[in-house]
């Protein structure tokens, strides 16, 4: 069982502590990070995630890598409680976000989701105009004034670098944008609800290299303000943008650590095999 936090990584020689040691670490953990304790996920009696214990550092990019079917996306979905929509999924364990267990009954799902901006694999514009897509989040969370909505929309479209490309057609359907533009639109839409965390589920896998580059640059820019967790299928991308890497295999976390160390000096045999490409 591996646990990691940015404090731990400062000391390069530390061995990863066992699960049981998680409680003494509590004091060290920054209140804004995500802490996961004993997370198990079952889908229709299949054990998908097995006893995951993790700390995700604040305001950094953390990439989750691993072969397909290892539970990366399932893991990401547990973070914003999207599994609540499918009754077949059973979840046990605790996930602390800002020191609050989001699987506590008292916690409001809506608030949790508002905190977590999700960027899906394929961009999925809602069936409305570009403007309304970005305004969707603020509106459902109660923003009424036209002027503020206008400002918000423009601000976030500018932020993702889309404003100049679409400024004369913000009232037209969002589906007419190119797929790369759509993904940036989805990012702007996610940012407009003012989340604290950004979850990306293979957010660039459907895009061409140029759009991928734009999105990656955005992520790097965004980590000043947000904690970013990305699931990715390309090692190169992880290498390029991640500060921390988590390697998952068959529902377990095999190894986790800062990017450079992870790639130059993997500690586990399985990690070495994966990095060398003997399985995927």
């Amino acid at each position: 069982m591996i646990i990691t936090s940015h404090r731990l990584q400062e000391n390069e020689n530390i061995t990863f502590p066992d699960t049981k040691e998680i409680s003494p670490l509590k004091k060290l953990i920054n209140s804004q990070s995500i802490r996961i304790e004993n997370l198990d996920v079952y889908i229709e009696n299949q054990h998908i995630l097995k006893d995951v214990n993790l700390i995700i550092p604040e305001k950094k990019i953390t990439c989750i890598i691993g072969p397909s079917g290892c539970g990366k996306s399932t893991f990401l979905k547990t973070l914003n409680r999207m599994h609540d929509e499918t009754p077949e999924v059973k979840i046990s364990g605790k996930i602390f976000v800002d020191d609050e267990n989001i699987y506590d009954n008292r916690v409001n799902i809506i608030d949790t989701r508002k905190k977590m901006g999700l960027l899906a694999q394929r961009p999925c514009p809602l069936p409305m105009s570009i403007f309304d897509n970005v305004a969707y989040g603020p509106r459902i969370h109660g923003m009424k004034k036209k002027k503020t909505i206008n400002q918000t929309v423009i601000q976030y479209l500018q932020y993702v670098g889309l404003w100049d490309e679409v400024r004369d057609r913000v009232r037209t359907s969002a589906t007419r944008l190119s797929i790369g533009q759509q993904q940036r639109l989805c990012l702007a839409r996610g940012l407009a609800i003012e989340p604290e965390y950004i979850l990306g589920d293979e957010a660039t896998s459907a895009l061409d290299p140029l759009s991928t580059k734009k999105i990656e640059e955005l992520f790097v820019k965004l980590k000043e303000k947000y904690t970013i967790i990305l699931v990715t299928h390309t090692l190169r991308q992880a290498k390029r943008i991640a500060d921390y890497i988590i390697f998952m295999y068959l529902g377990k976390i095999i190894e986790a650590g800062p990017t450079e160390e992870f790639f130059s000096n993997p500690k586990k045999q399985l990690t070495r095999e994966y990095l060398s490409g003997s399985f995927s």
Partner: peptide, 13 residues
């Protein structure tokens, strides 16, 4: 389903 998920994941009821 992605479209519905997109809306829900933004915290829409």
């Amino acid at each position: 389903k992605e479209m519905i998920d997109a809306s829900l994941s933004m915290g829409a009821t």
